[in-house]
Write a protein that binds this DNA or RNA. Sequence first.
DNA 1: CGGGGTTTTGAGAAACTTCAAATATTGTGG
DNA 2: CCACAATATTTGAAGTTTCTCAAAACCCCG
Lengths: 244, 244
Amino acid sequence: MTLHSTNPEGRKPVIRCAACPIADRAVCSYSTTRELSLLEAIKSYRTYLPGEEIQSTGEAAAHVGSVVEGIVSLSRLMPDGRRQMVGLLFPGDFLGRATRDTAPYDAIAVGQVTLCQFDRRRFEKMLGDSPALNRRLLDMTLDELDAAREWMVLLGRKTAREKIASFIALTARRSRAPVSADGLHIALPLTREAMADYLGLTIETVSRQIGALKRDGLIILTDARHLVIPDLDALSAEAGDDVV
Amino acid sequence: MTLHSTNPEGRKPVIRCAACPIADRAVCSYSTTRELSLLEAIKSYRTYLPGEEIQSTGEAAAHVGSVVEGIVSLSRLMPDGRRQMVGLLFPGDFLGRATRDTAPYDAIAVGQVTLCQFDRRRFEKMLGDSPALNRRLLDMTLDELDAAREWMVLLGRKTAREKIASFIALTARRSRAPVSADGLHIALPLTREAMADYLGLTIETVSRQIGALKRDGLIILTDARHLVIPDLDALSAEAGDDVV
DNA sequence: CGGGGTTTTGAGAAACTTCAAATATTGTGG
DNA sequence: CCACAATATTTGAAGTTTCTCAAAACCCCG
């Protein structure tokens, strides 16, 4: 990609908003050119390495911002080490709570991540003055709430097999996967451990259920992180949802 | 779902906003007197009987509104009958998506419920003009998102015992329960079935775990829906969360 | 008092986890 | 480019938790 050089600080040159790859989906997508120029003045870019902690629970967060590239996981760590992922942020998604000074969850970079950051206080101030930002943030938060609830159904009521099938089908839908004669080719963005934390399972169960789907011909593994879905409808049928 | 006697009227005389019991928490709580009078013009009250369906999945929702009295559950029913609750609305909470025309979940009255309703289209229109409403709705939605995520941790990683302990502790905190010499007296607002749907368990497991907490002296049941908590800290310790 | 619904209890089965170890895979320095 | 260490994934066997099925007990209301 264009924004690739990793400098030690994780700082990046500022991309002009007009050329921003997430301009149509980000928190600023309802904003006028005039408002964009105000945001442009307070934004900065930063990159994080795979596995790097962007924010940790209880820590004061100086910044909020948009995911430009990569994936960020939000998770809660229980005192005894159990971890549950509670959110997965893709490019365009917004990270952080403008109106709260400590982060309620750990935000961890999955793969390399680039954020478009704003100073939290200054962003909060702008939010107070901008109906466009406010409204966009509301719409995004409502979408996140819907996703969280869908996820609750998965966590509370689905079997391990359904969880895995749901996750793979979701990944297939989210990444506009290349279709070839043998099916959809997709890459799994998460490690088995991260999948387990996402789905409320152990890594062993994740591995076994992926194996089972493979044996049943619903997926074909090329390697541990890449697979082919010959028939997405058949896979989706294993996910336990209503036929959409 | 149980059959219930019909609710012929369900209409209630309009309470003046100035005398509204949820004025400090509702979606209108940031609004000026002037804006309240606009809302007052388009609001209506309606009551629902215990178990009555307020909205069902996929159905067009004509209204949105605030819970004034009672509790509303939001849940998703899977095609084979499994049900997962995804939200529990208390007085002051807002029901419905202004910017979406079909409800994504079933909204069911738990006990008798009174709503302060607005025509969805008209409310949506006001939302476009009102920073106060917008901002309040954003704050409420962020709180709901936090609650949903907390709940995801419970669903994905907690044991049955921890789930029950969490639920009882939560209920105790939410209902300013009367304290007497023997402890906190609380009423469980949900049936065992509703608790099971909330916690991602079966009714039998709910019943057994309540029995276990009782045997361990962490709760004292007066009847199936009323109990005493001698030591809330001890109960909370069973919930598996960080010590707060 | 009867009947519907709710809650509890029991026994066995199933799903998932835990512990343990083997097998890939990846990154690194020589 | 290879060997090696570190990490990630798979597999196996046994154990635990939770579910399922079945039935009894309880409770509220008319």
